[in-house]
Simulated scan of single mutants.
Amino acid sequence: MTLELDTVRIEDLIPHKGGMCLWQNVEAFDDEHVMLSTNSHKDSDNPLRSEGELRAIHLCEYGAQAMAVHGGLLARAGGEARKGYLVALRGVDIRVPRLDTLHGALQCEARLLMNSASSQQYAFRLLHEAECIAEGRAAVMLAPIGESDESSS
């Protein structure tokens, strides 16, 4: 991979824009994984908040967006970006009740487990201060070739 990570705009890689683009920094990536970081969980205007709180169930959205960022990075490095639809979450283990009470940055590693013409499977782990706060697996159904969207995966 030959991308300058400090010049990558995550909003250019995924369909989520503005406050719904949850990740702020790409730390590392290769053909099989991506590592991201963010402080978006501390934003009082985070669109996932309800009743002033950001519940930990939203870590699944952080994981799904990490997968989309990985797909966008692969496309930018010479592959093809394909629109994807999250169809299943498996083995999700969330270890904190809320995100807005966490003071440090969040990190996520998403690892591509399986890649076929019609679907992908990823494992994701979310970390706060080097401690795993959530992990799981997700399945994505890919749109047929020809329905590509350069900003999503």
Rank of each mutant, 00 (worst) to 15 (best):
R95N: 02
E53W: 07
G52C: 00
A143P: 02
A77G: 15
H70L: 11
E61S: 09
G72P: 00
Q121W: 00
L59G: 00
R9W: 02
S151C: 03
E129C: 09
M20A: 11
I94Q: 02
R111I: 14
L36K: 04
D149S: 11
V26D: 02
D93Y: 03
Q24Y: 06
R95Q: 09
S37M: 02
G18Y: 04
A28G: 03
L73H: 01
R9D: 12
L74I: 13
R55E: 09
R76M: 14
A77C: 10
F124S: 02
Y85W: 12
G71T: 01
Y62F: 15
S119F: 12
I145T: 09
Y85D: 06
L5N: 13
W23K: 05
S118L: 08
A105G: 05
C108I: 10
I57H: 07
S40E: 06
E150M: 03
E51N: 13
A77T: 11
T7D: 08
E32K: 15
S40M: 06
H128I: 01
D149W: 03
T38H: 06
L126E: 03
L3G: 04
Q24T: 02
E109M: 13
H103I: 08
D12N: 15
S151Y: 09
L22Y: 04
K42H: 09
V92K: 04
M35R: 15
S44D: 14
E109D: 11
N115P: 01
E53D: 12
G18M: 10
A105L: 12
C21V: 06
D93L: 01
R90V: 00
G71H: 03
L106H: 01
A75L: 11
S118N: 11
C60W: 05
E51H: 12
K17R: 15
P144Q: 12
V92D: 07
H16E: 05
H33A: 14
V87Q: 02
M141A: 14
V96T: 08
M35K: 13
E11M: 05
L54P: 05
P15H: 08
K17Y: 03
K83T: 01
R95V: 08
Q107V: 04
C132R: 12
R111W: 06
S40G: 10
H103W: 01
V8D: 10
Q107Y: 13
L5R: 14
R125M: 07
L74N: 07
G52S: 11
C132V: 15
G79S: 10
A123G: 14
R98M: 07
A56R: 04
L113S: 10
D6A: 14
G91R: 10
L86S: 07
G79Y: 11
L102Y: 06
M67I: 11
I10A: 02
Y85M: 11
G91S: 14
C132E: 15
V8S: 08
I14D: 00
S50C: 13
P15W: 00
E129N: 14
G72S: 12
I94M: 01
V34R: 00
